[in-house]
Nucleic acid binder design. Sequence first.
DNA 1: CAAGAATCCTGAATGC
DNA 2: TGCATTCAGGATTCTT
Length: 288
Amino acid sequence: MPELPEVECVRRGLSRANLTDPISEVWRSEKDLRTGATWRDEQLSRLQGARGRRWRRRGKFLLWELDGQGQSEPLGLLVHLGMTGALRVHHTGESHVLHTHVIFRFGDARELRFVDPRRFGGMRAGSLVELEQRPPLAELGPEPLGRGFSGSVLAERAGRSKRVLRDVLLDQRVVAGVGNIYALEALFLAGLHPLVVADRLAPSAWDRLAQAVVAVLRQGIRNGGTTFRDFQTVSGKPGGNQRALAVYGRAGTPCTRCGRLLRPFVHGGRSGAFCPVDQPKPRARRIL
DNA sequence: CAAGAATCCTGAATGC
DNA sequence: TGCATTCAGGATTCTT
């Protein structure tokens, strides 16, 4: 379940790996990865001979910028890790694990492997500019760790919505990179009930929520990401942020702040937890 | 247009 | 012990 902090940790690992030799070979398994308009035509072989320049992140997406051969336009590789996707750097000849679907081999006898058991992840190569300017990247909401993110930005994009706060935070068009774990953590930190309808929030509550989103994401990155089951970094190590989680996966256990038992809920087929004391659901029309 | 549901997938966890 | 069922869930597509 890589969300923004996990993807950012992967990005940093890939940057440190310095994969700048030309790609000598692209290997692809026969299994489909994520299907759908943006992923259908992967064009991975276009990266043959290209040189990696840098790794960027946008929300939960990774974007590898590459220089093509000759005077061709800059190329890009868009990657989404889905639920169980992992990017790992290996030496050529190291044994493969099950569910390895893509391999980029380099001149220096290393290779970048994409492993994804559930195949919710996807990859697509193409013109860098086109990847940037078309969906899904073009439709993403603001970067929560970028300049200009604030409660008023959240309010502007979701303040009239009838959806509940947890679902609003999961909407990548409202804010990019937040998934179920960090949405629930941010709501706890902000003292907001996850099932409050968005259009009831006053500006002060939106401010608190935006600050909480930033705080939990920063903490997640600082702790190397959250590994609940599958997440691993480029070197194969798990993250450490699961120890810092206040509510996700903790339903039925005591609240770290007040000791009351955290309550589970299911909404829209997705589960969550909250503290009935610290995250009350007020009757008031406006929630401050 | 917005909101909710169904869909994709495998492995771990649970139920009987 | 073993088999069947449930759950996990991001983004897209479909339905209401």
